[in-house]
Design a binder for these strands. Structure first.
Lengths: 342, 342
DNA sequence: CTGTTAGCGCTTTCAC
DNA sequence: GTGAAAGCGCTAACAG
């Protein structure tokens, strides 16, 4: 492979001149610029990114850590959407994306640290936030640049972009109440994730605000899988006073609940209302079409990337935090109850 | 950040010695090894990956090019599954994954070439194969290392891993025939992708093999989207002699067909049978549950990565090509027709 | 506007 | 077993 040296020789200039035309310096005569360009072309020269990185001390790459945890369930479209958002920003800045994704949380953690410490990446976007995780503290201590999609419980100075999950839970529950349902249960996700806790909080808030009583038997955990949700829903329906509406913490779980309800011979939304969260493609394809709270995943990616870019360029040091709202999407699984009971 | 030089000074050895303990050379006394390790720890030293790459002339990273084309529709699980497969192999070899994914095919192409030429990646796995694409020819000419998931039409010497799409089309169609359907239509994907052509070929083969007549009005193109498939299916149902079964080139399109059929008041599978391809999560969640041909996406990723590793290590030069079979998965949307007509 | 000269941090002969 | 020295290919002062 030809190097800058070869190009320089061929064009009859020095390597710094070649370097300058590559980086688009302005103080270069049009003539030499042309000559160098020609030489590069003739030799089929392409600058070596590794050498550039070493000399310029920037990798030009940022890491994306995607937990394969059920939190970002792969049946839904979180993953491609968030990448699309991130990519739309990074490509403008000429950054590449290094993907860190593994089945093993320990390996994930190790690889994230390694990539950052070895300066293989200039910064990272991390998409998981467990309740107890010391990774962030380490990263902060080491002054690594990163942005979290999610949030932290303690007051660590980290930048993050989150959707307002308390509000998401509130909106979903509130909608069911307004639609006329009165015994509203929640099928929650794995409580080791902050997102789960937040949505539960929103659920409770809406319940109490409506003057309803919070029943602990109406709050069940199904760990973000469809099967667990179906089972959990069966149990709910078998209660002495079964719920007349289900708020599932995501659409996949909602689909499990729908299945349990239909199997038991009840109708949706007449007998039982259902609402999920995410608005993944599944939601609109289901029958009945699923009401849900849409999460702006693409936007989460965009903002995470923007904030990281700022962190990297400005040397900005105060953490920035953003919270994006969800949107209620009413479909068949909940909308008409009001009509029936009214 | 401390460098090897700092470690060397602290341990009272030379940099080459430090380098040796890092790379795990054996001709190092246990004592110095210990001393160096201690020094690294005390200083919080982590080797700089970029510098290593420059000196060793390997990036330690491979590129994954994912077309956001409808071919790998994002409603389905192709993307995460193939990455999971690739990752399971790469992590064993200590390689990282650089993700190249953009909305614009031209940008995608440019970035792929740039990453390879700049030696930012040692090789690439490419997941799209359009009928007319000169990218592969360029890559071959430049002796770049890459593996294709898909296949090429001409006899370019490229390594690839593909699923046997002719057979996939054949199996799906054949199943419908055996289930008792007699007027079988196909809703095909975008014909600019080789995968589409192959599945059509399989469809035709099964039709003619069964002594049925191929009707061109039964073969329609719906470009891999659900909406287009729904519309296409409506038109099929409006024919003078409407089909009694639909083979859709993927599950997403099949879901569109299902919708059109149910809307028209027909029953599935009694009046019309439906089968898709992929077996993404959607298929089992739909009602009626969708029959489909499962594609071994994880395995495609595994093999692509394995072959690429061989290409990179052995300096292997003869292209390797693999074809993986699909599996028929019979569910509610097609299984019982035989019983009715029998 | 362009060339000279040091590095960037690590690997790798080649000696001893 | 360990060290010295020469790069890997590029960037970035500093001169001029």
């Amino acid at each position: 492979m030809p190097t800058m040296k070869d190009v320089a020789r061929r064009a009859g200039v020095s390597v710094s001149t070649v370097s300058r035309v590559i980086s688009g310096s302005d103080r270069i005569s049009a003539a030499t610029k042309e000559r160098v360009r020609a030489a590069m072309k003739e030799l089929g020269f392409h600058p070596n990114a590794i050498a550039r990185s070493l000399a310029s001390k920037t990798a030009g790459t940022i890491g994306l850590v995607v937990s394969r945890s059920p939190e970002n369930a792969f049946a839904n479209s979180f993953f491609p959407e968030v990448i699309r958002g991130i990519g739309s920003v990074l490509s403008k800045h000429g950054y590449y994306l290094l993907l860190i994704m593994t089945d093993d949380p320990e390996v994930e953690r190790a690889q994230t640290l390694a990539a950052l410490r070895s300066r293989r990446v200039d910064g990272a976007i991390i998409t998981s936030s467990r309740v107890s995780d010391t990774l962030f503290r380490h990263l902060v201590d080491e002054k690594q640049k990163f942005v979290l999609i999610g949030r932290v419980l303690d007051d660590l100075p980290v930048s993050y972009v989150d959707n307002d999950n308390v509000k998401v839970g509130y909106m979903a529950t509130r909608h069911l109440i307004e639609a006329g349902y009165r015994r509203i249960a929640m099928i929650s996700g794995d409580p080791q994730y902050i997102v789960s806790l937040d949505r539960i909080e929103g659920y409770k808030k809406a319940i109490s605000e409506a003057g309803m009583e919070f029943r602990k038997e109406y709050l069940v955990n199904a760990g973000f899988t469809r099967e667990a949700a179906e089972e959990a829903c069966q149990k709910l329906l078998a209660l002495d006073q079964p719920p007349d509406a289900i708020f599932a913490a995501d659409d996949t779980m909602a689909s499990g609940a729908v299945r349990a309800i239909l199997k038991s011979g009840l109708r949706i939304p007449e007998d039982v209302g259902v609402i999920g969260v995410n608005d993944d493609p599944l939601a609109s394809m289901m029958r009945p079409a699923l009401s849900t709270v849409r999460i702006p995943v693409f936007e989460l990616g965009v903002w995470a990337a923007r904030i990281l870019m700022d962190l990297l360029s400005d040397g900005e040091t105060v953490p920035r935090q953003m919270v994006l709202p969800g949107t209620l999407v009413v479909r068949e699984s909940s909308s008409t109850r009001g009509l029936f009971s009214a």
